[in-house]
Design a protein around this nucleic acid. Sequence first.
RNA 1: GUUCCCGUAGCUCAGUUGGAUAGAGCACCGGAUUUCUAAUCCGGCGGUCCUAGGUUCGAGUCCUAGCGGGAACGCCA
Length: 605
Amino acid sequence: MAARRHAAAAARRVARGRRGSLTCAVPPPPDDEMSRFRRPFAEALAPAVELPVDEVEALLGTPPRPEMGQLAFPCFQLAKTRKQAPPAIAAEIAGKVRATGAIQDIVATGPYVNAFLDGRAVAGDVLPAVLEGGEAYGRLDLGKGRAVTVDFSSPNIAKSFGIHHLRSTVIGHALVNMLEAAGYRPVGINHLGDWGTQFGQLLAMWDVCGDEAELEKRGIEYLLELYVDFNKARDVNPALQDVARAKFKALEDGDAEARRLWALFRKVSLDEFERVYGMLGITFDDMRGESFYEDLMPAVLNELEERGLLSESEGATVVDLEEYELGTALVRKADGSTLYLTRDLASAQFRKDTYDFVRSLYVVGGSQSLHFDQMKKVLELMERPWHADIEHVPFGLMRFKDRKMSTRKGDIVPLKDVLERTIALARETIVKGAEEKGRELPADLDELAHRIGVGAVVFNDLKNRRVRDVVFDWDEVLSFDGETGPYLQYTAARIASMEARHGRPITADVDFALLDGPGELALVLALADLPEALRRGIEAGEPSLVSDALLEIASLFSTLYSNKEWKVLSDDAALTDARMLLAHGVRQALCNGLGWLGIAVPARM
RNA sequence: GUUCCCGUAGCUCAGUUGGAUAGAGCACCGGAUUUCUAAUCCGGCGGUCCUAGGUUCGAGUCCUAGCGGGAACGCCA
């Protein structure tokens, strides 16, 4: 099956998966930094509001502008029971409640009761936690070491690793890292598309013009050429598809020569894939491709038979799911060979047996929603209670701006080319910058350019909600301005440079009254929000929630940083220490968050 | 045809369980650099939140019906 992955589908637009496919039980209130400030406000309000503290806390929101405070309690719902106008209620409550601790002031603003947090107290609470947390800042203990499998990347053997594989690869990788950071035991699975009729196609073509010397020389490029040639030939002579099916049947039945060639194709492909994964810094815990499940499929089919779930339809064997509005699911072709779904049923069971997951994620394009719905339904009918733990994490497919991608026509932009081009641009930018500023070129120019170029590509894919289609646009990928990976890296690099200049160890023993300004407060609160972004990101299977949090942090810091009146390093030792602690916290948060996204942070830029 | 996804500024997108004046980036225009890295920052320009009903004290958000774009729907994966 050329894997689950949009082989042919690359040419089509994607359907997005279902909303809420990842909704699971809402976890208890997070034990993160921000909740430390919400809770006391809720406790202070509760008596005057005459509601339980939990309910009050749940109602708390954030005012639209910082001048209005940091926390808001809306009084609309009270208006009914009290038969008073919301502003009057807000005024009354504000008059009764006294500000204590980290809450500096409580004022009624229209229909809201707003709390102003004490910048000194908040900074004193958050910044030491960031410093002490270090690389662990933001980490959570949600998972308690429980396993979550993440099926991602999963390219088809015998085709170049194209830009269209980027999405599953980077989203899945980010989710693996995020799960790990949240205390889960993630299992990254590369379910290689190394089985299926496509190999019949390749073998059919090989009979006509296969050349091992050529394969040796040109590797995967040659395999792609065969694949494209096959599709061309089939357009003229549709009977070739039957030849291909017969070839795959032979492969499945153990034909020696077919097996030998298959193994060769697989190896040539893997060598190519490993190069790309190396560039991205991605490894997998499990590289079992579809072929591995070959032996497990008879058991699946037997059980389906025993449970009376199978029926015959036009020669093929199917599970009828019409009553669930899921159509009919084919599990065995008329010629007896198996299908995508059959193998996924076997692999799902294998993963449960092997890893005992509490969640099993499939980072696969949204066009395959029906497939996963069918798979889950069949597992449910097979009385596997864990069918509910399987979650399709769909994403929109990538298209070109001016044309459609068609793997069948060999119309692939190799991911390697994209990365090389962005790396080259990063290098140019570094060199140009060094010239303009009269600085020396960094000794580790190659490493820097690599991190920046790759970071740009990865972040570009992770910054938006994954269900959206992505239009591949060179201009966009090659832009390092604005909301981009290089922007975040750059912000961290500037701070690293200050830390080096600072020279002294960074301490949490500072005068937090020096960090009392509104800019500092907003920034500290943004830092405090990072764990929550991680929690929500995992819950929704959505790395962009982390991306957003990082952009917010970098943007708030950059605003402070560019203010001429606001210098981190100065003659005032106490002020320098305080601001250095804040700046360091920003760098730490950016490094940690970018790490979760699978983006390396250069030491300088 | 049926089902699913999407529709917010010229472009790309944010927008917690429904809450205050719908926010960013890009592009464009104008500023900021003797001073911690200008891959930056500040200001300006820019909106029938697809349409019409409905629910609600309150709708970009929820419901219904349409419109527009995309996807899936048996021997591909």
